[in-house]
Amino acid sequence: MVTPSELFRYAIHKFRHLLRGNGGTEELEINRMSLPRKLLLEAAMIMVAVVYVVPFYWMVLKATRISILANFPPDLNPFSRTSFNNFINNFHQVWSFGNFPTWYFNSILVSSVVVTTSVMVGAMAGYAFARLKFRGRNILFYVVLGTLMIPFPVILIASYVFMVDIGWINSYQGLILPQIASAVNVFLMRQYFLTIPSEIEDAAKIDGLRPWQIFYRISAPLAKPAFAASAIYTFIGSWNNFLWPLLEAQTVNYWTLPLALNFFKGANGTQIYWNQMMMADILALIPTFIIYMIFERYFIQGISLTGTKG
């Protein structure tokens, strides 16, 4: 019998391994490998990386061009003086376009509130399920895992109707609240808390800490990697969320960046201003990119758990 919960348990199992990072099969290759083979493999890796970088490179390139048409022969240097001036110019155009600063602000607001609350709610519940004894613990935990079985479309339409009914269309709470409850965060946190030796908490009880003090003084500080992992992918998920804001934010004042990007696509009638669209893409990418650069390790740990992406 394999249920989603087992699938996730399995994923966590892998995830834990990554957390400790003790090398697996990759290590033994290195000593034995002949130089030509190594070079061949490296060339293959570089080729794959190039394939993945090209679209992004082109995005940057287009954002440093002023003309809407392709030059011939194409100028492939995004770092020239003119490129830089164009870049700044494009930035001004995008930034002053419509309510771009508002959309940016909305995205930052929504994502940061979603991340803090979702991770906190997940950590609290995850801790209770991992460490505290209470009536109905197992059943309630299965209820939480069961939410993973409900596909998003089923929730989507009714949530939308519900928001219409209570008048929360076009509101921050309408954008934020449905994104907070995350069974995956609860599950990740619970698994991580389970790896902390329970004797540490016993010692804390003897030292006079009450259950909630054990949670925030002892266990939560020890679960930093789990906090980081779930914060990062919750952030990315929320920052890039498109479908929910699309239904929820029907006036431009409540748009988030993905809606803005989509809007840019058709903003200028039939004429496509690639430079502005790509500039907007870049602006939307910057926060996730920075976070990715800083926390790449945790991000990858988190991804091996979450599985699906928008």
């Binding site: 540490i200 804390a204 003897i206 030292d207 002892i218």
Partner: peptide
């Protein structure tokens, strides 16, 4: 009665020290 109110102290096989606190703070927490 709650463990800390029993006037006992416990020593564990795996030491159960608080990993994020210094030795000093481990001893001082109680």
């Amino acid at each position: 009665i709650y463990p800390s109110e029993r006037n006992i102290a416990m020593v564990f096989q795996n030491y159960a020290l608080y990993p994020h606190m210094t030795v000093h703070d481990n001893i001082a927490l109680n």
